[in-house]
Design a protein around this nucleic acid. Structure first.
Length: 881
RNA sequence: GGGUGCUUAGCUCAGUUGGUUAGAGCGUCUCGUUUACACCGAGAAGGUCGGGGGUUCGAGCCCCUCAGCACCCACCA
């Protein structure tokens, strides 16, 4: 016994900050300062949270999974690096600050503040947000190396971005081109295909002709764009229109000038939809633009006439009656005109269609032709004989260049399929943005001259491109820009490709794909070997957490009230790769309860024994042998589950072992058997180690309570030691069943819990004899009689465990009718079971085809069930006598 | 239009390569302060694994089909 004081309940608030500070001060988050010889490296680049706000539950989930992995690997003796960082998140951050400024009364922040002024405002906001979010990451217990803290928008990352751009430009992959882009009027910027969210809405489909003498009717939900039509496309085989193909008609639709409409053939036109003819507006539709390019290539060019401007209003080209109108107004006016001219050939009809909206500004994306910077995914990379698309495909299939060591494995596997589908349908990536918060495009112009480089040309007269880069251009290089690229650093050599990464499926295309693209291009290496894709956390009703739903939960508040460990465990368990899971305070409570249980298990051991490190133990009793066997299978299973990233199951296995096997059974048996110092010390140490990746704080606190001076964080992960003891497990099962059955009878006959009761067991075995004291202790039996055979004592309650009968003398209490009813029910059950077993064993095909093992098992079961039946039958007979 | 996931106890979810009588947590019911823990202990109730068909000696698991829910992708103007 030692004089040890531990509070009855674990108070996370009293420990967490101090424990984190101690970890941080120890320097052990830094792989270079880890003790021992660590040959194998393990590295993870944190998915950098955006500096747009605060930590949300999604981060909590991700941090929990990642940090569990990191802590596990560190304990396994790997040289473990977890790089923290934040993302400047170009559009989201600028959008957020602009919104704030407008709420404060500004009408047009860009105009009123100018580039420098606005960027300064955003920088101030981003810095505050960065500090907040990083402190919150610490609250989550993330064991990352703060000495390597990175930011997608800092000087080093800017150097990497510029170098990457320069190389891609020199390789001819980055080009400047005039094409139709996705334009957000509200954001006054382009965006990539991946930043568009399709929203379903009903639109009105108008069917009309450009003029009375135009032979073909067309349909459109955006008739105002028809002011810029320069062709009508029909299917080449469409007999209705074949005769017009190649002809040009001049029509006056009220635009600035009459339009020349050429009838062209295009395989892509569906003859069955609408009128089977498509009005071609090269300036305001990506498909129409591709037709324009095809025509140009064929030497039969059509015109391209933009009628919508970047301000979302009709241009001068749209004609006097439309110029300056926003598109909706122009649409109304154009429709009235069509009606008054009698050009509508059909009543307008409502249809459901998907429109693209900006994921950050929310407005409908307009297609506009503009000159922008693009990344070509189909062009061969000089000297490599492959395109970027090829590299992205190889990385997840054969491995880069067929090298299996350069292959990315995505968990769950179906995400690989999603990724590959996307790779095959990838279009050139629009890189330039017209917003100001972000990496400025490293291109300078002087008249017709272009200079692409890491820094401005030294001589005067050059002006830098005003645009900034898509934010994913910098996050795409995250795994290697954080390790010092383009310098050939020691870190890069040691830690790249990184080993593992976690992210939500919603950024599979935006981020995972770009990281693979960038890394395979720049380093000829994959960015990471394993990608673990997690689902979304939803609220208890399955609704996505969002501001508009008003269901937000602040993880920091949860930590304040329940502790970080409880939050971590609650989001980790019940969460399988790629699937959404629900978050609820009930789950957090349940996790908190477990944490407290672990605390009290430790409290019991530490206050009743003197804990000391035990290298190996000699089991003295059946209970010892059994718990060591259970521990063995737990350690083997949990390790296997960690290796296969099955965190949820790992926590379940551990929980079952800790609470049920260890606390409910073994500790109670230890109280009876006494003298368990060695065993308890041995097991507690190992249980804490196994839990550490999931419950870093409470395990570290207990570890310190045990008197350890080194951190649990760097203690070696437990190994398989004693082997499975099937005999002990079987024996224990019998003892557990006997105890449970006696407790059951006691409960049924309302025997006072504290009262000792006598019992008779018929069906003697060595185990029962040997463990009689355990049965007596745990089932509160006074005198226990064990005999090989015998009749049911008069006036006793009876029950059956296998072929063993148990009798409790409860004269006066026993209700024979009730007893008979219960036994009859049991008999029915066992009869049903016997019937199903017999059916199987009598089936020659089953006996012939099923593996011998399975058949043998059935036979054993049959024998057991028959014994059980005999036992029940004899009890029934005794009652009915 | 193409694709993916889900549907198992009242609720939230597990269920590894098809092999006993399908599991856990929460909730419910009964009882309970025995040298840790009421954030606890003991006991119990509760499921024809979405419907239908098929393959197999054997299906929650494999195949087909239908239904419901969720999500992703797509240039039906």
């Amino acid at each position: 016994m030692r004089d040890k004081e531990m509070p009855k309940a674990y108070d996370p608030k009293a420990h967490e900050d101090a424990v984190y500070a101690a970890w941080e001060a120890s320097g052990l988050f830094n792989p270079d300062k880890l003790p021992g010889e660590r040959k194998e490296a393990f590295s993870i680049a944190m998915a950098p949270p955006n500096v747009t706000g605060v930590l949300h539950l999604g981060h909590a989930l991700e941090d929990s999974l990642t940090d569990a992995m990191v802590r596990y690997q560190r304990m396994c003796g790997k040289k473990t690096l977890y790089i923290p960082g934040t993302d400047h998140a170009a559009i989201p951050t600028q959008a957020k600050v602009e919104k704030m400024l407008m709420k404060e009364g500004m009408k047009n922040p860009r105009q009123e503040l100018g580039r420098e002024g606005l960027v300064e405002k955003i920088r101030t906001f981003a810095e505050q947000s960065r500090v907040t979010i990083l402190s919150q990451v610490k609250k989550m217990g993330a064991s990352c190396d703060w000495s390597r803290l990175a930011y997608t928008f800092d000087v080093s990352r800017n150097a990497a971005v510029n170098e990457l751009f320069r190389r891609m430009y020199n390789d001819g992959l980055i080009y400047r081109g005039y094409r139709v882009v996705n334009w957000s009027t509200k954001g006054q910027s382009t965006c990539s295909d991946d930043e568009i969210v399709h929203v379903e809405r009903t639109s009105i489909l108008y069917t009309f002709k450009y003029s009375k003498d135009f032979p073909i009717a067309i349909a459109s939900t955006q008739p105002e764009t028809k002011l810029g039509d320069t062709a009508v496309a029909v299917h080449p085989d469409d007999v209705r229109y074949q005769k017009y193909i190649g002809q040009t008609f001049t029509v006056d639709v009220g635009a600035a000038a009459p339009r020349n409409i050429r009838v062209i053939a295009d395989e892509g036109v569906d003859p069955k939809f609408g009128t089977g003819a498509l009005g071609v507006t090269p300036a305001h539709s990506a498909i129409d633009f591709s037709m324009y390019e095809k025509q140009k290539a064929k030497g039969e060019p059509i015109e391209i006439i933009p009628v919508i401007g970047t301000n979302g209003c009709m241009t001068e080209e749209a004609g006097k009656s439309y110029q300056g109108l926003v598109v909706e107004e122009a649409r109304g006016r154009f429709v009235s005109w069509l009606q008054s001219e009698g050009l509508m050939v059909k009543e307008p009809e409502e249809i459901v269609q998907n429109v693209g909206t900006s994921d950050r500004y929310g407005d409908v994306i307009e297609a506009l032709p503009m000159t922008q910077w693009w990344l070509d995914v189909n062009k061969e990379i000089p000297g490599r004989g492959k395109t970027l698309r090829d590299l992205m495909r190889e990385a997840v299939t054969t491995g880069l260049g067929g090298d299996g060591n350069q292959k990315v494995t995505i968990t769950p596997e179906r995400c690989t399929k999603m990724y590959l589908d996307r790779v095959e349908n990838l279009r050139d990536w629009c890189l330039s943005r017209q917003i100001w918060w972000g990496h400025r495009i490293p291109v300078w112009y002087r008249g017709e001259e272009i200079f692409v480089g890491n820094e401005a040309p030294a001589v005067e007269g050059w002006e830098q491109d005003p645009d900034t880069l898509d934010t994913w251009f910098s996050s795409g290089s995250w795994t290697f820009s954080t390790l010092g690229w383009p310098e050939a650093t020691k870190e890069l050599k040691e830690f790249h490709p990184t080993t593992w990464i976690t992210m939500g499926y919603e950024i599979l295309y935006l981020w995972l794909m770009r990281m693979i693209l960038m890394s395979t291009y720049a380093l000829e290496q994959i960015p990471f070997k394993d990608a673990y894709i997690h689902g979304l956390l939803r609220d208890q009703h399955g609704v996505k957490f969002s501001k508009s739903a008003g269901n937000g939960i602040d993880p920091i508040e949860v930590i304040e009230n329940y502790g970080c460990d409880a939050l971590r465990l609650s989001v980790t368990s019940g969460n399988t790769p790629g699937n959404d899971s629900r978050f609820s305070m009930e789950k957090v409570e349940s996790a908190r309860n477990f944490v407290n249980k672990l605390w009290n298990i430790s409290r019991f051991i530490l206050t009743t024994t003197t804990w000391h490190h035990v290298e190996s133990v000699q089991p003295k009793t059946m209970a010892d042998q059994w718990i060591l066997s259970r521990y063995e299978s737990t350690v083997v299973n949990v390790t296997k589950l960690m290796e296969s990233y099955d965190f949820s199951l790992a926590t379940e296995v551990l929980r079952e072992f800790t609470w049920s096997d260890f606390a409910d059974w073994y500790l109670e048996m230890a109280k009876v058997e006494q003298g368990k110092d060695e065993m308890l010390s041995y097991l507690l140490e190992r249980i804490l180690k196994l839990w550490h990746p999931f419950l870093p704080f409470v395990t570290e606190v207990i570890w310190k309570e045990m008197g350890n001076t080194e951190f649990l964080m760097i203690a070696p992960w437990p190994k398989s030691e004693s082997g499975i003891n099937e005999g002990a497990e079987k024996d224990m099962k019998l003892i557990q069943d006997v105890i449970t059955t006696i407790r059951n009878l006691r409960a049924e006959y309302v025997v006072e819990p504290g009262k000792m009761i006598d019992a008779t067991i018929v069906g003697a075995s060595a185990v029962l004899e040997e463990q009689a004291y355990v049965i007596k202790g745990l089932a509160r039996v006074g005198s226990l009689t064990i005999q090989t055979s015998g009749e049911k004592p008069e006036g006793s309650a009876a029950a059956t465990v296998g072929s063993t009968q148990i009798y409790l003398p409860l004269a006066g209490l026993v209700d024979l009718q009730k007893e008979s009813l219960r036994l009859t029910k049991e008999l029915d059950e066992v009869n049903g079971y016997l019937a199903s077993l017999a059916a199987k064993l009598n089936n020659q095909e089953f006996v012939g085809k099923a593996p011998a093992q399975v058949v043998q098992k059935m036979r054993t079961n049959l024998v057991e069930a028959e014994a059980r039946k005999a036992s029940i039958t004899s009890q029934l007979a005794a009652i009915q006598k």
